[in-house]
Amino acid sequence: MTIVEHLRSLGHRIVNAVWRIGYTSRFFLLILLYSGISFRRFHLTIKELFSSGVMSLIIILVAGLFVGMVLGLQGYETLKRYGAESALGSLVALSLVRELGPVLAALLFASRAGSAMTAEIGLMKATEQISAMEMMAINPIARVVAPRFWAGVISVPLLSALFSAMGVFGGYVVGVVLIGVDQGSFWSQMQAGVDFQHDIVNGIIKSFVFGVAVTAIALFEGYDAPPTAEGVSGATTRTVVESSLTILFLDFILTAFMFQGE
């Protein structure tokens, strides 16, 4: 009897997972289909850009500065053993532009703005604002979800560029100003090591993909949340967990495609 029950719950979970994948895909297509309004009435998107992008600026800038400073310190300690301190600039810049900038900015965005999106939409659903919109023949996906989606997709690449630039500045402060690595070799090694198309453009592509993934997950979890206090809190947690794992997984896939065999 217990075996049958286990099998039954396993089957239920699998069916549930497949059902969710289908629902997510349909939700994603609906966002794309109804996103015309978020560009025609751009002030809707502007408002969301403010609450997700501008309000994340502080955390992104401070985090970028400190990550760059830590990279400067650790990189110097390691490079010093091989007498290659002058390569500090290219080490800091490459690791930020290729990996840390896009990934950490997206992780911070997921926990700072993604969770807020989920909670907001979940509460809108719990307080029946979404049903009220449907009653008034307003499409809630076009009015509420799509502007948030595009705001997230626009914000994340900009935030990751800011993160990387701030990180390079932090590495410069620690490496050149505090430790005393030669300024000329810091910048020239950096410029020699970082290729615009290969490193910077690929980093932007990465952060764009992360932006799509994080906002889509956050919006879906909010839209799908059970309309209870417990349901909204569970959905917020799931947003952070799922989007963090998705970012790291996608990062591996994209890195394997972009930087293989070089």
Binding site: A161, A165, Q191, V194
Partner: peptide, 19 residues
């Protein structure tokens, strides 16, 4: 301001950091 700062960071990355 946010968008301009983001694009400026991108320009810095392209010109000062990249080649």
């Amino acid at each position: 301001i946010f968008v301009v700062a983001g694009l400026a960071a991108l320009a810095v990355l392209a010109l000062k950091v990249g080649n």
